[in-house]
Design a protein around this nucleic acid. Structure first.
Length: 472
RNA sequence: GCUCCCUUCGUCUAGUGGCCUAGGACGUCGCCCUCUCACGGCGAAAACACGGAUUCGAAUUCCGUAGGGAGCACCA
């Protein structure tokens, strides 16, 4: 009974594509809203379009949801398994004279639509069969679909949580088809029936559905069901302010996993698109749940900015413990063909984490810390040319001799030995000794602090790499 | 074409009639730190789409204009 006034929301994707950025954000706002108010979050797969819906896409969507950690409380329900419920409701409307059979052929409809459009009018159904249908009892052999008899009088106003009051003239709404010739129900009808039977209290969805809302409200009215609250979320656009699509790069949310984004970071970034909480930029999932408020959601569309998304990701990476960060990065190292020996974990954790300020994604982190794990570094030609010349090698040799005799191998001792050599060779700027060493160890001119790299790598590997570099 | 919606720095946003010489963040640029690259610190450039009206006072209210988006399917 306590649950009676608890909110119930749903995310209802159609499995005709991957879970994309926009869909994920819609799901997230539903999820946050439900968790914030201790309500119920339902997952519903809208697969009435059998032509385009596939099991594969359903699986992708489920995987995306799981990766982002948006666990649902009920479902996933499939509309294809609920056909009887829709049929019952169509019958009910038919019986009550609120729907009728339409014998117009698709081709006729199309030509009439075009004529209307050409005349500068809104291409709505002209209502030809509205009064023709004899109702029940006509055993007509001609194929027909079923249309909803949309009331044409007066205005229809609803209060959108994000947009405020929105008014439509009922005249604008035509008699939409609720069941196709083959008897299958159409979208606007199934959503209403589903939302009603699943006792959805708040319909939170993309604002591409804003125009569908009045027609759906008319259905609620005809069915004599309570009307839920609506919240229409602004869209997410590409950098060119056009709808996000493949040419903007990754659209499917799961792709961001392969790029090395943390799910919490994605959640964080997505939540900040159209929503804010003061000046705070970085949120844990718990904070998002705690602070989320639908009333704060903006009205205008937002552009997906991959640079900021990366920055948010970096912030979340920095919040992880060293062990957590290592385990998150390990799969990306393995993807590069690098076997990380568990025995060497102490070394590996330090190695990976030594680069954490330098990487915005786990993948980047794997790439720049890979040199620790390779037998031989990948040589950067320019770096080798510049720093492993005769002079550089001479310095390297001196370092090598000194390091070979070092008893204690830690950052402090290494640094002392290093400074001694620098002084002995009369090298004024440390960079002139550090860079040959760095290139010899990493193959490149950029890395964590040289003493840190030296210490992490260990004496044996260091000397081996020096030899290799000296052989150039 | 018709209907509905939207409009603050390049981008995400704060702002609900005086606290706004419009705040924060990403990005950009400069300086500092410095063994490289980062991180970090400091600083800079950068916006109320336009025009009216209401008001002592408007980013904030109202009306137009312009621009953008969505819908108008036997797709969802």
């Amino acid at each position: 009974m306590k649950n009676n006034n608890r909110v119930r929301v749903r995310f209802a994707p159609s499995p005709t594509g991957h879970l994309h950025i926009g869909g994920a954000r819609t799901a997230l706002f539903n999820y946050l809203f439900a968790r914030n108010l201790k309500g119920t979050f339902i997952l519903r797969i809208e697969d009435t379009d059998r032509e385009r819906s596939t099991q594969e896409y359903t699986d992708f969507i489920l995987k995306g949801m799981e990766w982002l950690g948006m666990e649902w409380d009920e479902g996933p329900f499939h509309q294809t398994e609920r056909m009887d419920i829709y049929r019952e409701h169509v019958e009910k409307l038919l019986k009550e004279g609120k729907a009728y059979r339409c014998y117009c052929l698709p081709e006729e409809l199309e030509t009439r639509r075009k004529a209307l459009l050409a005349a500068g009018k809104k291409p709505k159904y002209d209502g030809k069969c509205r009064t023709m249908d004899s109702g029940l009892g006509t055993e007509d052999q001609k194929p027909y679909c079923i249309r909803f008899k949309a009331p044409q009088e007066g205005n229809l106003t609803f209060n959108d949580i994000c947009r405020g009051e929105i008014t439509f003239n009922r005249e604008e709404l035509d008699d939409m088809i609720i069941a196709r010739t083959d008897g299958s129900p159409t979208y606007n009808f199934t959503v209403v029936v589903d939302d009603v039977t699943m006792k959805i209290t708040h319909v939170i969805r993309g604002d591409d559905h804003l125009n569908n809302t009045p027609r759906q409200i008319q259905l609620y009215e005809a069915l004599n069901y309570p009307i839920p609250h609506f919240a229409h979320l602004p869209m997410i656009l590409g950098p060119d302010k056009q709808k996000l699509s493949k040419r903007h790069g990754a659209v499917s949310v799961i792709e961001y996993k392969t790029y090395g984004f943390l799910p919490e970071a994605m959640l964080n970034y997505l939540a900040r698109l159209g929503w804010s909480h003061g000046d705070q930029e970085i949120f844990t999932k718990e904070e998002l749940v705690q602070f989320f408020d639908l009333n704060v959601v903006g009205k205008s569309p937002s552009v997906f900015d991959i640079e900021k998304c990366k920055w948010v990701n970096h912030q979340h990476m920095m919040k992880l413990t060293h062990a957590e960060l290592f385990h998150a990065t390990k799969p990306y190292l393995e993807e590069m063909g690098l076997e990380i020996d568990l025995e060497a974990n102490g070394f590996a954790v330090k190695a990976v984490c030594s680069e954490r300020e330098r990487a915005k994604t786990l993948k980047e982190l794997a790439e720049i810390s890979a040199f620790y794990f390779r037998e031989e570094p990948v040589w950067d030609e320019k770096a080798v040319e510049k720093w492993l010349n005769d002079e550089g090698k001479q310095r390297l040799n001196a370092l090598k001799d000194s390091f070979a005799n070092l008893k204690i191998w830690d950052e402090a001792s290494i640094q002392t030995a290093f400074k001694e050599i620098q002084e002995k060779l009369g090298i004024k700027k440390m960079v002139d000794l550090a860079q040959p060493c760095r290139v010899a160890l990493t193959g490149t001119t950029t890395s964590p602090g040289i003493f840190e790299v030296l210490a992490i790598l260990g004496k044996e590997k260091v000397l081996k790499r020096f030899d290799r570099a000296l052989a150039f």
